[in-house]
Simulated assay, not measured.
Amino acid sequence: MSIAPSLGAPLLRMHFHDCFVRGCEGSVLLDNANKTTEKYAIPNLSLRGFQIIDQVKTAVEKVCPGIVSCADIVAVVARDVVVALKGPSWEVELGRRDGTVSLASETLTNLLAPFANYSTLQQGFKRKGLSVKDLVLPKIELFLTGAHTIGTSHCSSFENRIYNFTGKGLLGDADPTMDPRYVPRLQSRCKPGDQTTLVEMDPGSFRTFDEHYYKLVTKRRGLFQSDAALLDNAETKAYVELHSQDNTIDFFKDFGVSMINMGRIGVLTGIQGEIRKVCSKIN
């Protein structure tokens, strides 16, 4: 991370995106000539750092060939980049095996969009066996609820909130739940139709893992509708407000627990799947 700190958020997000589609079994890493695997789906086009996973896999294979799965490597790297960005550490459970199927079409039905409302978020997490607390605490670029204490976002992910919230094309048609003083700042960075500009999700602190993003959410300065939605429910609102009060120790502890819980989604063990020799292709 000292070499490429900007890869921290994408590598963490990679773990989320892997686990929410088919489970934590490395399907997000698979590639093919037709570009029909998960990594080519629209929600995953912002993922980066696949070469880091490949480098780790190559190094591990030299020491203990055929033992460590690509899925485990993704989970461990996610933990390590959080630590490198001054965040918490947690004990990564190991023993996952790699899947052999990866379909871009499955991402849209499993990854929650940044414009999801609270009900959609809750249902999506419930399907994966996660709780309301997990919904709030893994707030690190889940593309589902957004990864927001570290990383950046394309303007296109929140453009509707600052230009055309009702869909009627009216002048000044911004999301009323967003701080009206913040909207002009975002508009100065993102022009209508902008598909390339990146905006910091936690301005001034986007390369440090901390609870500051919760402060932005309570001030109605979260980028995504999914952030604003967390204030629509009494329970999630209470968690957001708690962690906006410089409650770093509890935030770090809870985040680690939530990451462990997420890392258990749909794992393959025993004789299921395989241990890939190369992470981008099945054996």
Rank of each mutant, 00 (worst) to 15 (best):
A9G: 12
L11I: 13
L11Y: 10
L11Q: 08
R13L: 10
H15E: 12
H17R: 08
H17E: 15
E25D: 12
S27Q: 09
S27F: 02
L29Q: 12
D31H: 13
N32P: 13
N32M: 11
E38N: 11
E38Y: 08
S46H: 11
S46C: 05
L47P: 05
G49A: 05
Q55C: 12
V56N: 07
A71F: 00
D80V: 09
V82D: 02
P88M: 02
P88K: 02
L94H: 03
R96S: 08
D98S: 07
G99N: 09
V101P: 02
L108W: 08
L112Y: 00
Y118E: 02
F125L: 14
V132S: 14
D134H: 00
L135Y: 00
V136A: 12
K139G: 09
K139N: 12
I140Q: 12
F143P: 02
L144S: 15
H148E: 13
T152C: 07
T152D: 14
H154P: 07
K168S: 14
K168Y: 09
P176K: 11
M178W: 03
P180A: 11
P180Y: 09
V183F: 07
L186P: 07
Q187E: 05
R189T: 12
R189H: 06
D194L: 04
T208L: 05
F209A: 13
E211K: 05
Y213A: 15
F224H: 07
Q245I: 01
I249R: 14
F255M: 01
S258E: 03
M259W: 08
M259Q: 12
M262R: 05
G263H: 00
R264F: 02
I265D: 06
T269E: 10
G273A: 02
V278M: 06
